[in-house]
Nucleic acid binder design. Structure first.
Lengths: 149, 149
DNA sequence: ATGTAATAGTTGTTTTTGTAACTAACAACA
DNA sequence: TGTTGTTAGTTACAAAAACAACTATTACAT
């Protein structure tokens, strides 16, 4: 057995992954069942719904998603008429992405569910706990590489 | 743009995923580079190192990992002589898994790195923040389905 | 005993992701 | 102009994960 008191259940990356997995999975069911979307597609949809017109690169830098993921998500969202692409007039490399009416409808629906879900998660936590959680997660997500080796 | 103040950066599942991704990735480099392991394999190795002899099912229920993942992880770990399997004498369906000497060495090495990494993550947080984070993550990871729809 | 269900673990097939190489358009500067 | 470098986005291929069907063994109820 173990020589010391290190415990896997307390290892932070492990805990983070478990919590992330559990909390993603429930919400995933919603956009999967209602709109047949993948997580990447849902993320793109949300960014467009939230910020309006964006390019794939914009989304990439905001969401820290790799461009190939975005490319494929946009492709599927376009095929299914949630998103429209328009080439920029001045720079024909860039594409401006916007939601279609259908896309906006889906966004608003999911947005509402997301808020309820958020609330149901927060209900499990004390107020100060929740605040500390947000702060801590923000720090960890945006931290520079730790250099622990 | 957005009609209200809901922000994706504050959506808890999103935040959790970002933090989890960042903190997994750095550590992943270690076990990948040093031992050519995947995340599933590292998890199995850690469970065996921590708890001693276990069956695949034991690991599955503890780590909430699907049994096919474990099966394949164990297969690769066995091929590479990190793990040994032994059929149970009374019930020939079950296999008892243990680390080899090489497996224990790898575990101890990674274990030490994990502790340093853990520390480097915690160093980014205030003491109370860190405590709240652990408590909150534990609650979220073990919570019953929220039923928010 | 024997048929039915349950459990441990594996294998096969399909999705999804990751990585790297690629095309097309622009920029900048000799 | 033309050559070199950069940026936006796509595509091709390999690695990994998800899901379903499967084998082998045990349990259990008739």
């Amino acid at each position: 057995m173990s020589q010391n008191n290190f415990n896997l259940q307390n290892f932070l990356p492990y805990l983070l992954n478990q919590a992330a997995e559990v909390s993603s999975l429930e919400f995933q069911n919603v956009y999967k069942q209602r709109y047949g979307m993948l997580r990447t597609e849902w993320r793109v949809l949300f960014h467009l719904g939230l910020y309006g017109q964006m390019t794939a690169s914009d989304i990439g830098s905001r969401a820290k998603m790799h461009k190939t993921k975005i490319s494929r998500a946009v492709q599927r969202l376009t095929e299914r008429r949630f998103v429209e692409r328009a080439r920029d007039a001045n720079d024909r490399r860039v594409e401006h992405l916007t939601l279609t009416a259908q896309g906006r409808a889906a966004y608003q629906d999911l947005h509402a569910v997301a808020e309820r879900y958020e609330q149901s998660l927060m209900d499990q936590l004390d107020t100060d706990e929740a605040a500390a959680l947000r702060r801590a997660l923000g720090k960890l997500a945006n931290a520079a590489p730790a250099g622990f080796t």
